[in-house]
């Protein structure tokens, strides 16, 4: 009886202890449900682009721009979507309310490269697969982080390229291109992505 009593007390205290996480857990579930349900009701973007939109935002956090890339410390970080926009509202949702080093985030969309030359990050839509050379050359030495889901984008001079590994979205990084664009990429980012352009890196080692 005493054992049972003590057990009951323990049970009681356990449930009390758990009450808090349980509540928070319940709240998180509700929130998650709201997050999932809200975009779906408007124009449900593909799961893939949602992830990629978040990835785009995450890239911003692991990249350091040269000082001249911003006019002032409060100058916004401009994200440009060149060509076809696969993200829909997902990108806007991903950056909404976010800041990078106290800089607000601005998303611009354009089909013209000229409009987007002052962007800090440029997503190159799939429709520009064939005009890639021109775009990239136009942007050479500009402190612009270029991202695309076009195959071989990195090998062709792009900085970060998405690729599909099963269901998982992965990316490869051309650190030579990054250096070319005077961008510093965080080692954390580098440890997660497939890094190419290391030859150039070693070649250009003495230059840095």
């Amino acid at each position: 009886m005493i054992q049972a009593g003590l057990g009951a007390v323990h049970a009681l205290t356990d449930s009390e202890k758990r009450a808090h996480p349980f509540v928070s857990w319940f709240a998180a579930a509700v929130l998650l449900l709201a997050l999932v349900c809200a975009p779906a009701s408007a124009q449900p973007p593909a799961r893939e682009y949602q992830v990629k939109a978040v990835f785009l935002f995450n890239f911003l956090q692991f990249v350091e721009w040269p000082k001249d890339a911003f006019d002032n410390p409060r100058a916004p970080v401009r994200i440009g979507v060149l060509g076809e926009d696969p993200f829909g509202a997902a990108l806007d949702a991903a950056v909404r309310g976010e800041t990078i080093d106290h800089r607000p985030l601005v998303v611009r969309r354009s089909n013209r490269i000229e409009d987007l030359e002052d962007c800090h990050m440029l997503f190159v839509g799939g429709d520009l697969r064939h005009r890639l050379e021109g775009v990239l050359s136009r942007l050479s030495s500009q402190p612009i982080l270029t991202v695309s889901e076009i195959d071989g984008f990195a090998r062709h001079g792009g900085v970060i390229a998405f690729y599909q590994d099963g269901k998982k979205v992965r990316f490869e990084i051309n650190i030579a291109a990054a250096r070319h664009h005077r961008l510093k990429l965080s080692s954390e980012l580098l440890s997660l992505g497939r890094v190419i352009g290391t030859d150039a890196l070693t070649e250009g080692g003495p230059d840095t």
């Binding site: 992830v51 990835f55 995450n58 692991f62 998982k168 990316f171 954390e188 980012l189 440890s191 997660l192």
Partner: peptide
Amino acid sequence: KTTRAALAFEDETA
């Protein structure tokens, strides 16, 4: 710190 990137990019393996 070392796992935040993995978290950010949902890289469980890493």
